[in-house]
Simulated assay, not measured.
Amino acid sequence: MQELELWTLDELCDHAFDIFEELAAENLSAEDYTLYQQHYESRGYVDLAIPGEDWVEMMMQDLEPELHYEAQIGLTGENGDADIVLARILLSREKYESLCHAQWRGQ
């Protein structure tokens, strides 16, 4: 059996940011996209999490916690405000797996 080529977690974060950057302008509201553009250098973040049940229901298949991650991309809150999650992107750690689904803020 061929061994899978996997992204490291840092590479997966970079990959998620690349996808976000490519799709954000057409999927976020103009207000959210402008807010992101103004503050991404100082407040932008990506967090990786194990996909929740909502992804399992949406995908109609089980997801493997070792291979599938949800990347939450957004802006950290200011003055004690909550973080703003702009997108949740479901990705596989397999480098040649095309799995990629996104849920955007406001959609």
Score class of each variant (00 low, 15 high):
residue 51 P to F: 03
residue 74 G to F: 01
residue 68 H to L: 04
residue 20 F to V: 04
residue 39 H to C: 09
residue 97 E to T: 12
residue 56 V to I: 15
residue 59 M to Y: 07
residue 40 Y to M: 06
residue 57 E to P: 00
residue 74 G to I: 01
residue 54 D to Y: 09
residue 100 C to Y: 04
residue 35 L to G: 07
residue 45 Y to C: 01
residue 96 Y to C: 15
residue 4 L to E: 14
residue 73 I to M: 05
residue 64 E to H: 14
residue 104 W to S: 11
residue 11 E to Y: 01
residue 71 A to F: 02
residue 39 H to V: 01
residue 64 E to Y: 14
residue 17 F to L: 12
residue 61 Q to G: 12
residue 11 E to M: 03
residue 77 G to F: 03
residue 63 L to W: 11
residue 47 D to K: 01
residue 73 I to E: 08
residue 79 N to Y: 08
residue 10 D to P: 02
residue 66 E to Q: 12
residue 103 Q to M: 11
residue 2 Q to C: 12
residue 37 Q to D: 10
residue 39 H to G: 07
residue 46 V to F: 01
residue 2 Q to H: 11
residue 62 D to I: 06
residue 68 H to R: 09
residue 69 Y to A: 02
residue 90 L to P: 02
residue 26 E to A: 13
residue 91 L to P: 00
residue 104 W to E: 12
residue 90 L to T: 04
residue 92 S to Y: 06
residue 72 Q to I: 05
residue 60 M to H: 15
residue 21 E to V: 08
residue 24 A to T: 06
residue 14 D to I: 06
residue 37 Q to C: 14
residue 51 P to D: 08
residue 96 Y to W: 15
residue 85 V to W: 00
residue 88 R to K: 09
residue 104 W to I: 04
residue 33 Y to G: 10
residue 25 A to I: 12
residue 83 D to I: 01
residue 37 Q to F: 05
residue 94 E to W: 02
residue 30 A to I: 11
residue 36 Y to K: 00
residue 18 D to H: 13
residue 49 A to P: 00
residue 59 M to E: 15
residue 84 I to T: 12
residue 15 H to I: 01
residue 105 R to P: 03
residue 1 M to W: 05
residue 93 R to F: 10
residue 57 E to Q: 13
residue 66 E to F: 04
residue 47 D to V: 02
residue 89 I to Q: 05
residue 49 A to F: 05
residue 85 V to A: 07
residue 55 W to P: 07
residue 91 L to W: 04
residue 59 M to A: 14
residue 106 G to E: 04
residue 98 S to R: 15
residue 106 G to W: 00
residue 23 L to K: 13
residue 32 D to H: 10
residue 49 A to Y: 05
residue 90 L to F: 00
residue 25 A to E: 11
residue 7 W to S: 09
residue 86 L to R: 02
residue 23 L to G: 08
residue 103 Q to H: 08
residue 28 L to I: 11
residue 97 E to H: 15
residue 54 D to C: 03
residue 71 A to S: 08
residue 62 D to K: 14
residue 97 E to P: 03
residue 58 M to W: 12
residue 21 E to Y: 14
residue 78 E to D: 09
residue 47 D to H: 00
residue 69 Y to G: 01
residue 67 L to T: 01
residue 87 A to V: 13
residue 33 Y to W: 14
residue 36 Y to Q: 04
residue 21 E to S: 15
residue 47 D to I: 01
